[in-house]
Amino acid sequence: MLQGINIHFCISDKPIIGEASVKLFPGQFTAIIGPNGAGKSTLFKLLSGDLTCSRGNILYNGRLIQKYKSQELAQIRAVMPQHTVLSFPFSAWEVVELGSLNAPREISQQDIQDVMERLQIWHLRDRKYSLLSGGEKQRVQLARVLIQIWKNQPFPRYLLLDEPISSMDVSLQHLVLAMLNDLKDRNIGVLAVLHDLGLVANYADQVIMMKAGSVAFQGNLSEVYNSKNLEKLFGYPIQVKNHETGMGVMVHSLPYHYINHTIKQAQ
């Protein structure tokens, strides 16, 4: 289990994360959602080890994150940040292969090809990374972090993704989220910061709802992911309901001009 216990983080005495405790289970897909400035990315960076908590502890499989060497940690968790800018002209294939840095012999070329084919970027393998589109870059980076944890291990592992699908079109978003769901069978816990509430409703098992630097709601989707909590979280009318075909859940937010109308009527 990946745990954050009583995490507190501040920059020059201004608290960014006031107080947060989170749990991430292997074999589950956990989404972090919340309004802008809620501290989602900061929480993400604390969990990944990029930032160190001012107070509180992060534990990977029961062991403090500080106790791991960077190499050991790389075997347990892979991280995909929001943006990655390359400083030199590497090809897409070379970027993906970097994911095998820690275990170059265990990852075969076939593994890399499989991952790239599933993400539909195999045809881009010789292209310079910097010349790819935003969505293509995201898939290359995703392939890289998947390669890092591709081989099964006897201990639980975690995949941390900060807005991994923000530049992808809708069909690719579904493709990627379905692929991430497949990872759950390998005893991997997936954590993703996401913005699309509909996709969260249909793919996540757990949700961490952040607001103003602390966790507002947290738990199984069926327990906490409802209209009332979402409205409180975003301060905006949002409805969660089953789709009429019975296939999946719909999250609907009212267009702005209708809200003004209802408010006027209420007055």
């Binding site: 190499q71 968790r77 070379e94 820690n102």
Partner: peptide
């Protein structure tokens, strides 16, 4: 050379892959 390749992704990214920055 492997570490320098990883650093091209960024220092944080290199740390994530297991480089002792």
């Amino acid at each position: 050379y492997p570490e320098l390749n990883a650093m091209a992704l960024g220092e944080n990214e290199a740390y994530h892959i297991g480089v002792n920055i």
